[in-house]
Design a protein around this nucleic acid. Structure first.
Lengths: 379, 379
DNA sequence: CTTGCTATTGAATCTGAAG
DNA sequence: ACTTCAGATTCAATAGCAA
């Protein structure tokens, strides 16, 4: 078994294309069984992102009744019972160790929980060398009230997003998140409704799973921290929200699940999920991934003549464009960035937005010329 | 010393009236020195509530500059430096052990932190036998942005509220909280602005303390979980927000603080604090903010599928919805507002009223979908 | 006195590819 | 593993000053 796993890992590193991935990884399938054992069958460093919704260890007391006398359907399943915090910690370390082995160097992991378990999970993540990137608050738009009036209404859950290590070059689709949030940076608190209505899966008229997560939550997680074609693993698959959203978003997925009844519901659900087509899947790209244009290219191709004057917005500084794309301001010379930084006495400067020109009677940053150049060069 | 402490504890249990309390407890005073040593001088089971704002162990890297080149004034104080997680844990266990000894059987403790430290604090609290009652999210109305676009904006801090044990008959003023929240149960997420403006204490023109907490936060904590005349201890007193609010609410307080400069500011501040009348309370506690709806939220939650077509009223322009909530019209992409403006050649555009969809056989502005979404999401 | 513009600032684990 | 350098990147609130 171990030899097989190693061979698979080699294959994956050697040629990570689609066919190879499908051959060495059981992609888009549910692995039936204990998640730790199932993870052991997968090769090292093969997973891009892990989403985990482990048991919360809720420690509920007796039955809970609403003020009208009706019974509250609490999470009382065996899988949520642990004899002690120590037992829960052992369980957590075991599945996280496998998760860590499976993650690629630049991969990241999400874990969701409540105050019952999330502090233990977070501390263990840190102890194991994961690097916390954010803690995210899912603020429930419609939480269950605190019927007895003994505490604050528990109206949120916490997600931890962590990279495999401090050095990981993790995926974060900043532009897509900013777009999704009406052109403001996406914050660490997310307002989303809980999973109910049509979305809530039923079996024989009752809820198929006690803690089904809303697809909107997974949608945001996956859009933010994976790319198309990435492999997402969910060790506690349940009714397959992760798989359904992954399929819609063009990501590959692997799920681990013990309970036959959940697997059955999940398979049916994912079967029915429709993948989005290419154009709908596209997201706003960050400038970082855009093709680079050297300032010199604008000079070469005549968008800006050598000898032209550029200046900062307040016209405190003026410089002359030289034939090689460098700038000169009195005795100082340098690149658009370097000279801008030098003149301001700043550690760095984005010359594209710092320097301006007069173009068609208007003052514009030279970045505007770059945009025009790019449009002209395309096709 | 130990004998004296025991005698004090006896006196306190025997006759816990005001005069005795003042004789055996250094009430309404700042204890100058290391918090663990200072706590050792106080008698067992003498404190009703502890509010602690310990160092967060931020582990910051190098300098950080804003996009405009200005410098971010980070927390670089020695008191926030620890050599490792293990060292931080040891420190945490030590001060929490004293805190636990000082707490009355039915007392409770609040600890505030960020993802850097709060998971460790929470796990240690549980290991020591404290019983977590809620984790509370302080959603900052005006957090510092993520200047480099590398993560989600860190827009909240976490508070843990725990009783001394599972059996504690802790104080929770349910009615007061409900009144404060417009007759709705107070939730576990609190929207409050950060401490700035007039409230932010200055010394020689610069902030007196790098991490001063807003009084509104302490106000809610104390109003919810203490009664008038209770003794509140703050082991990390800083500039004395806890003391100022305690005085205004008619609670007694004890603070521990090492730094002379903080003590000086705190003493002056508390001296000036006046008991506040009830009517002022309503204005200083901000109501729950109506969450704004981003167009992306409609996409995430399935009200509008990626790939759907939107168009202006006269159907001059058509665009396709993409996965991140951006729109695409031929070669152009952008947000609902930005693309609307671009296509019309207008300086700006309200995308909510400009773009329309077909919904239930009718053409409606997408704003109508937003209204439906809000109705569905409201409590 | 009001309105509008600009500058400042807040618990921050804050770049990445090429050489 | 190191350095170098192009160049990407910010939201809300408050204070101060000008009009």
């Amino acid at each position: 078994m171990v030899a097989l796993v190693k061979e698979k890992a080699r294959a994956l590193r050697a040629a990570p294309d689609k066919a190879v991935k499908a051959r060495v990884l059981p992609v888009n399938r549910i692995l039936r069984g204990d998640c730790i054992e199932m993870m052991r069958s997968l090769p090292d460093a093969s997973i891009d992102m892990i989403f985990a919704d482990p048991p919360y260890n809720l420690q509920l007391g007796g039955d809970l009744a609403r003020p009208d006398g009706s019974h509250v359907d609490a999470v009382t399943n065996d899988w949520d019972k642990f004899s002690s915090f120590a037992a829960y910690d052992t369980f957590t370390r075991e599945w996280l160790a496998e998760a860590r082995r499976l993650l690629k160097t630049d991969g990241s992991i999400w874990v969701i929980g409540s105050y019952h378990n999330i502090f233990r999970v977070g501390a263990i993540l840190q102890d194991m060398g994961f690097w916390i990137l954010n803690d995210i608050i899912w603020r429930k738009a419609n939480p269950m009230p605190n019927f007895k009036g003994t505490r604050f209404t528990n109206a949120h859950e916490t997600l931890i997003w962590a990279s495999k290590s401090e050095k990981s070059k993790y995926t974060f689709n900043y532009r897509a998140m900013k777009t999704l949030n009406d052109e403001l940076q996406m914050r660490s608190d997310w307002v989303l409704p809980i999973c109910n209505g049509q979305e809530r899966l039923k079996r024989n008229g009752t809820k198929a799973h006690p803690t089904q997560k809303p697809e909107a939550l997974l949608y945001r997680v996956m859009l933010a921290t994976t790319n198309k074609g990435d492999v997402v693993l969910d060790p506690f698959f349940g009714t397959g929200t992760t798989g359904a959203v992954a399929k819609r978003l063009g990501r590959d997925w692997i799920g681990c699940e013990r309970e036959d009844s959940y697997i059955e519901v999940a398979e049916e659900r994912i079967e029915m999920a429709l993948p989005l087509d290419e154009s709908a899947l596209a997201t706003m790209q960050s400038k970082r991934s855009a093709p680079k244009v050297a300032f010199g290219a604008l000079v070469e191709s005549g968008w800006l003549a050598p000898g032209a004057k550029v200046f900062d917005k307040k016209r405190r500084f003026t410089a002359t464009v030289r034939a090689d794309g460098s700038l000169q301001a009195e005795a100082e010379t340098g690149s658009i960035h370097g000279l801008g930084a030098k003149l301001q006495g700043a550690p760095s400067c984005n010359g594209w937005t710092f320097w301006h020109v007069e173009h068609e009677g208007e003052v514009k940053p030279i970045d505007a010329l770059r945009q025009l150049y790019l449009l002209a060069v395309e096709d």
